Amino acid sequence: MSAQNNEDQAGDLLAEAVRLREENRLEDAREHLLALLARFPDDARVAYCTAEVHDMLGLESEAVPFYERCLGGRGLSDDDRRGALLGLGSTYRVLGRYPRAVDTLRLGVAQYPDDGGLQTFLAMALFNTGDHHEAMQILLRLLATTSHDPQVQLYRRAIEQYSKNLNETV
């Protein structure tokens, strides 16, 4: 079987797992994905979906190797890679592995600097490591640049300035 046929077949079977997940049949989706991953161990898309389902089931420790596998492989779309970095970083954080969470989320922010979700989870992980100053800077910058609240926008310049130096009292 050619590599393309193999990818097509994995894609068709993966669609079934996605359908099960969307129907909230998470345990069925998990079983389907584990079987699919046994057939297609190098398919990063399958590993990513497997990680997500484990996370959704509250099986964070079991999700980690699947996230690591998908990020170490090839074939993830840009959106899936972004989601996998956020998922892995968030999962490390939930497990109390804060330095690993920070490293993973920093990598995500470096690759996707405009992703507010990655920035938010990085700020939370930084808070957990005791780096409250940097966490606050990230959140203030994010608030200033993404909020549609008229009062936030009124003070946007000041908020952005304070995000650079929280100790400043201009």
Rank of each mutant, 00 (worst) to 15 (best):
M1N: 14
M1S: 14
M1C: 11
M1H: 14
S2A: 12
Q4G: 05
Q4N: 06
N5L: 13
N6M: 10
D8T: 06
Q9M: 15
Q9I: 13
L14F: 14
E16K: 12
V18K: 12
R19V: 11
R21V: 13
E22K: 15
E23F: 10
R25W: 06
E27F: 10
A29P: 03
R30P: 01
R30Y: 00
H32Y: 10
L33K: 07
L33N: 08
A38P: 04
R39E: 01
P41V: 05
D42T: 01
D42S: 04
D42I: 01
A44T: 01
A44M: 06
R45Y: 03
R45W: 02
V46Q: 00
V46W: 02
Y48D: 15
Y48Q: 15
T50Y: 01
E52R: 15
V53R: 06
D55N: 11
D55W: 04
E60R: 02
E62P: 05
A63E: 04
F66C: 12
R69N: 10
G73R: 05
D79M: 00
D79V: 05
R82N: 09
R82M: 15
A84K: 04
L85D: 02
L88R: 09
S90W: 15
T91S: 00
R93L: 13
R97T: 05
Y98T: 01
P99T: 06
A101S: 08
A101I: 06
D103H: 07
L105P: 03
L107I: 08
G108L: 02
G108S: 07
A110S: 01
Y112A: 05
Y112S: 13
P113A: 14
P113I: 05
P113G: 09
D114M: 03
G117Q: 09
Q119T: 03
Q119A: 13
L126G: 00
N128M: 08
T129N: 01
D131Y: 02
H133L: 00
A135P: 05
Q137R: 11
Q137M: 05
L139D: 06
L143P: 13
A144F: 09
T145K: 07
T146V: 05
S147C: 13
H148I: 04
Q153C: 08
Y155D: 08
I159T: 11
I159K: 06
E160N: 07
Y162C: 12
Y162I: 14
L166C: 12
T169A: 11
